[in-house]
Design a protein around this nucleic acid. Sequence first.
DNA 1: TTTCAATATTCCTTTACAAGAATATTCTTT
DNA 2: AAAGAATATTCTTGTAAAGGAATATTGAAA
Lengths: 108, 108
Amino acid sequence: MGIKITTTLNALAEPNRLHIVELLRAGPLTVGEIAERLGLLQPQTSKHLRVLNESGLVEVQAIANRRIYKLRQQPFQDLDDWLESFHHVWHERFDRLDDYLSELQRKD
Amino acid sequence: MGIKITTTLNALAEPNRLHIVELLRAGPLTVGEIAERLGLLQPQTSKHLRVLNESGLVEVQAIANRRIYKLRQQPFQDLDDWLESFHHVWHERFDRLDDYLSELQRKD
DNA sequence: TTTCAATATTCCTTTACAAGAATATTCTTT
DNA sequence: AAAGAATATTCTTGTAAAGGAATATTGAAA
């Protein structure tokens, strides 16, 4: 069934992880570079990257003793698709609340 | 500065809250209806709705002793915009990883 | 083959938060 | 006014998870 959307959301909900992901928009980076640019300690950076990796948001490539992290498309695509399922809500030409209130009153 | 994206993500990361939001896609509902349709107890439903409300994801309209909850567009719009800032990542015609590896080697 | 650099892991402590149960609040109806 | 719905709040407890500090691992270089 692929990655659950709550897994993605949960991973991104943590501010430091969100920053990491935003940082990686500009391209792949090593752990040390991420830590430096975000002012994080290396261990916490690794821990956050672990979560991001296990959530499928990033992938790693090992080069010597460095690990290069880069974004994966899939979860972002899935989030996009999920958000699309809400588009029709705002574009309905009639206000559903009105309908609902009439409906409520009808039942009483 | 509006609603922080992590606030939105955090609210949506909880499975029951995600279900509530998905349920509200079809239109506004009362607390009791939400609880019933999702098989939740009323108190927890109210608590989740409180979080959703405080996060700006839903708004309430009181009618007599019922509270009707409906989705708000803003946070979804914001999420959409945020996701758009990633689109260019996948559409670059060249693989940034290659660039990065060359760059790493150059520095050594 | 030691030493150094980059990264990961473990342990500990603290905090956030979700569920359950009970109770309070508010409005309606009789 | 009293009783009953619908909803919100409080209190408690269990658990996940984040940060800090220390240490383990892996590869490179001297």
